[in-house]
């Protein structure tokens, strides 16, 4: 290694390989307990994450439990073709993308705004109290959140009365497709805004106070300070979280949708994953559902990959 400038010859490379193998062996014999400790996690992920990935092969066969994984007939891309040409494909894809996009546009900026507003509060105890209260919904289960939502959207529930007061029609809002997206995203914001703002609040408290001092000396008011000191200080956090959120575009909270939707609201509420659930686990059409699920996973993978590529170019912060 001392004369690294000279290109290593083959013999040297072989020797290096041997040395490395020797070192690994020695480390195994000296530190075997560490490697043993990693056996459970590796086994766990192989069984419950990688076996299912291998199980995706059923997307290319006509799987039945009777013939088994290896005995079922291979059918190639039949299920994918069926899905792409089915009447549901367009609706499912657009519902997934629209719900995702709306969710993104609304639930991403709101925690930042909450953090900025809290940052302007000069009374530490008031700030702390509001913050603590804002975490409350995070501890409440989805089942209960949807239960309360159902209560508020009955024909004379609180939200329905509000809608009527604003000139809406009223009735049972959860049963109406045109309200589904607003209710889904609104209740998500209620449940997560406090939790999501934590990271911005911490980032805000990390901004150098001398920068504010300097801005004040230059004659900047609160608004100018926010614009020229606070927001630039928050930008790296915003960018990283923005990219992480991009990666979640295809992973909507389908468990919550299953609690909220019904045949009457499928036209806006049914997304790819809820369709997978219905077709696969309710109707037992495993192969077709696995194919649809695989389509969703691939799109998701591509989105994350592209988002990460862009981020490493734009901001030199990448997730891996």
């Amino acid at each position: 290694m001392a004369n690294a400038a000279v290109a290593p010859s083959r013999a040297l490379k072989d020797q290096e390989k041997k040395l490395k193998r020797h070192l690994i062996k020695r480390d195994f014999s000296q530190n075997w307990p560490v490697y043993l400790m990693l056996v459970p996690v590796v086994a766990y992920f192989i069984i419950f994450h990688y076996l299912p990935m291998g199980g995706l092969a059923i997307a290319f066969e006509d799987f039945s439990f009777r013939s088994g994984f290896f005995g079922s007939q291979f059918v190639g891309f039949k299920h994918f073709e069926n899905f792409f040409s089915s009447i549901y494909f367009g609706r499912l894809l657009s519902n997934t993308l629209i719900l995702s996009a709306y969710g993104f546009l609304i639930s991403f900026p709101l925690p930042i705004i909450l953090a900025l507003l809290l940052n302007e509060v000069r009374q530490p105890r008031f700030k702390k109290t509001v913050q603590t209260i804002s975490y409350l919904p995070y501890f409440i289960s989805v089942v209960v959140v949807v239960g309360i939502l159902q209560d508020f959207t009955k024909s004379n529930g609180l939200l329905t009365q509000l809608v009527v007061a604003l000139g809406g029609e009223g009735g049972n809002l959860l049963g109406k497709p045109e309200y589904f997206r607003a209710l889904f995203i609104g209740s998500n914001v209620w449940a997560h805004i406090g939790y999501s703002s934590i990271i911005y609040i911490s980032a805000l408290s990390g901004i150098d106070q001398e920068l504010y001092e300097a801005a004040r000396i230059d004659g900047a008011g609160r608004w100018k300070q926010t614009l020229h000191v606070t927001l630039p200080g928050l930008a790296p956090t915003i960018i990283i979280l923005f990219i992480m959120r991009l990666g979640e575009v295809m992973t909507l909270d389908y468990e919550k949708i299953i609690l909220m939707y019904g045949p009457g609201t499928y036209s806006t509420a049914d997304i790819i994953q809820t369709y997978v659930y219905r077709v696969g686990l309710v109707n037992g059409d495993y192969s077709y559902a696995a194919a649809v699920g695989l389509f969703n996973s691939i799109i998701n993978f591509i989105v994350i990959f592209v988002a990460n590529k862009i981020s490493s170019k734009v901001s030199e912060t990448s997730l891996w």
Binding site: V34, F48, L51, P52, M53, G55, G280, A289, L294
Partner: peptide
């Protein structure tokens, strides 16, 4: 630790790609 990188990859890859609902159910 030897194989630290591949082990980390084994774990983090499951965050960006998964077999999904049906194959997991079957396992």
């Amino acid at each position: 630790l030897y194989f630290r990188k591949p082990l980390l990859f084994l774990l983090t890859f499951t965050m960006i790609f998964s077999g999904g609902l049906i194959p997991t159910y079957m396992v």
